[in-house]
Design a protein around this nucleic acid. Structure first.
Lengths: 220, 220
DNA sequence: CGGCGTCTCCCCCGTTCGGCGGAGGCGGAT
DNA sequence: ATCCGCCTCCGCCGAACGGGGGAGACGCCG
């Protein structure tokens, strides 16, 4: 059942102890072979280019180039790139998203036990026919589309104008906004006019549209 | 390295041949044991309740109760539920999302080779410390928020009313909408009134808000 | 001190909007 | 043949809206 040629693995982590531990775990398996190590993202790039491994265990936090960027560059520059498993200590969500978007084949926590580690390596080496393959990428892409950079006018709104826009985006009239904010209707009119000017819109409807497009509303 | 007690697996698929094939593959591994089979979602539920497996390979399409619902119910009703791997022929995105949302531990294509299959079973049995665990759930949750069920009023809008609402949501006035649609302003007024009535809103701004909240606009 | 931005409020004016009721034509369903 | 839904349009009215211009108060900063 064991394949004739072992799975060639490169370890990229700035801490020597981590590399040593990983090497010890992987070397105990006859079908796995650690063929290189790197302590920085840049080093990882050149090592991978030289030894052409099947799998890379890539730490996120590393000097010079972090693991995410190293992953991107490896996948972008090599013809038949290795499968890359991003390794980190904490399951920071944005790391996971970044790793997915960068094209990593998997995401592994350092607290994972030895058995999970070796099975992860075998798994990613075997291709992505398993466990949320391509679809996970589309999820990550969707996540990226869901968090675009906000337009410039958002920062230019004063606090009061922002409040008014929020109320406008809830469908309130000027009079209602005035009541809720404890000011006169004329004041609200002024704020609305300022909002229209800064958003480059001509009426409250267009302003609300702009607010939605800019994802100006936090809840919703 | 092999654990003393084998991993207990239940197969749920309405096609006998698939079950036989899976059983053949899994039985060849000393650390895996097929302890039950089910041909329907309902059957899967009772079998799992009886034999208490570690892992369930669950087909999506099944009579009576589909695999997704069966997964939901198993996870909801059992105290220490098994890890469930959803199996299907095509990598339909919505299936993947549904599986994730239902709480499945993995997603497997039927075209996956035997080795990938057994490693998948071993992997999910070993817990989710690996390959996009909890974070994948949050992604799925985000996807669910991004694609909620549209409100009832969407279906009740006539074609013309829908067009008008789209134009309203682009910030056009009644007169502009009338020009673009090649009708009189009075006609647009009628359509707008109908839209307001059916959406339960009192002015165009609130209607546009409703359109955005309902994701009535396809692009954007 | 003197500008500057912000928040507050005022008046006037024309436009737009939304609510009301009505009407005719057209096509599908019963 | 009749009803019903949809699309098309009409007039009238009050309310809300947006533009214009202005003004006083406050605080910040150079």
């Amino acid at each position: 059942m064991t394949s004739p040629t072992p799975i060639r693995v490169v370890l990229a982590d700035d801490e020597r102890m981590v590399r040593t531990a990983l090497r010890a775990i992987l070397s105990a398996e006859p079908d796995l072979e650690v063929v290189g190590e790197a302590a920085t993202g840049a080093e990882a790039l050149s090592v991978v280019r030289d030894v052409r491994p099947d799998v890379v265990l890539m730490d996120v936090r590393m000097p010079e180039i972090d693991g995410i960027r190293a992953t991107e560059q490896i996948l972008a520059t090599l013809d038949e790139p290795p499968r890359i498993v991003v390794v980190t200590t904490f399951e920071n969500d944005s790391y996971v998203y970044d790793a997915l978007r960068a094209g990593a084949a998997g995401f592994l926590l350092k607290r994972a036990d030895a058995d999970a580690l070796v099975q992860a390596v075998r798994l990613v080496a075997r291709s992505d026919s398993l466990l949320f393959p391509a679809a996970v990428r589309t999820l990550a892409a969707e996540h990226a589309r869901a968090h675009p950079a906000p337009p410039a006018w958002v920062a230019k709104l004063t606090e009061r104008e922002g409040e008014v826009l929020r109320h406008m985006a809830r469908g309130l009239t000027n009079a209602e906004i005035a009541r809720r904010m404890g000011v006169g209707p004329a004041t609200v009119k002024s704020h609305v006019a300022a909002v229209l000017a800064k958003t480059g819109t001509r009426d409250r409807t267009q302003a609300v549209i702009a607010a939605y497009e800019a994802r100006f509303l936090n809840g919703g």
